[in-house]
Amino acid sequence: MHASDIESVSLPTRLNEDWRFGQPHIRAPQLAELIDRARQLDMDGSALPDGVQLEECTADVLPTVGSDALMQRALARLKRGHCLKIADGSHLPQPIVLRSEAHGAQVQYLRVVVGAGTQLHLIEEHAHNENSMLVCLRHYELLPGATLRLEQRENGSGCSHTLCVTSCSCASDTRLCLLSTHSDFTWARHESTLNLTAPRAEALLLSANRLRGKQCLDMRSLQLHSSPECKSRLLCKNVADEQSTAIFGGNIRVQPRSHNTDAYLSNLNLLLSPHATVHSLPMLEILADRVRCSHGAASAPLDAEQLFYLLSRGINLADARAILSEAFLADVRLQFEQF
């Protein structure tokens, strides 16, 4: 990509609704500066099972939720991307694990093609070193009849920053379950775009995060129903402690003629500190009738009765709070296991 093309796409500003509450005027220039001197983060495909190939590929433009300019800059730093191909009809009993470690400012691109009728459990784990910044660009393509269980784990370390752009494209009769977790980073933004392109595609997007200190997690999602008879569910749970900030912006968009859509979006937040903040932006844009779409958002402190119950059983306050917040998040993991 030419430098002039990058400059033509302006960085997100306060007028960008997809960055509402996300302080784009501060975050975006800082991130752009880091991206402009970032190196490519390579992947190791030597220990992959039969029928699975990791190849080099071109890094294509991905749909984002408000970060086009940052994505374009990240693409400009990449010489190439990686493509993980799983052959049609494969059944892999063990999960495939892709681990990478970020040092300094780095950019990574991965395209995953899950073959027709294939069942795959993929675990992606990023370890972020102190003072690292990682931009992950991900595209998952599910061919007809494919099933993908996907875990994205972002494990930060002290002062680390990450921008993760995930795009999922689901063909007919596919099943996708995505669980993303973020821990121990300073600032993380996760943008996911789900496009259900053919009938009977089904997706479950899950996220569970526990925030402490001055951490800021900014989650954005778009559930795009481009075809009739598709189903999507999203559940994002955050526990905000100390001075942390959790932002969630999710949109269900049902395109014209996508009848018999069934979509739901839920954002639940637990506030554990008088200095914690949560922002929730659950949205619906419905351009077709004969649909069932709804969303819910709730932000609340720990339930006083539950807390009292544990205290009355001799559990101290700190442990009781930890147990209840763990229980609050555990349900997300359970849903992933049961998919």
Binding site: S273, A276, L287, V291, A298
Partner: peptide, 29 residues
């Protein structure tokens, strides 16, 4: 929604500070 061409949108923004307030939002189409 009464017709195939009809459109409806929901754009709520909810911000909560502190650990003693409860806010609930639900929407359906």
């Amino acid at each position: 929604l009464l017709h195939a061409e009809s459109r409806t949108d929901t754009y709520p923004a909810i911000s909560v500070h502190g650990d003693s307030s409860g806010v609930q939002h639900e929407a359906s189409v």
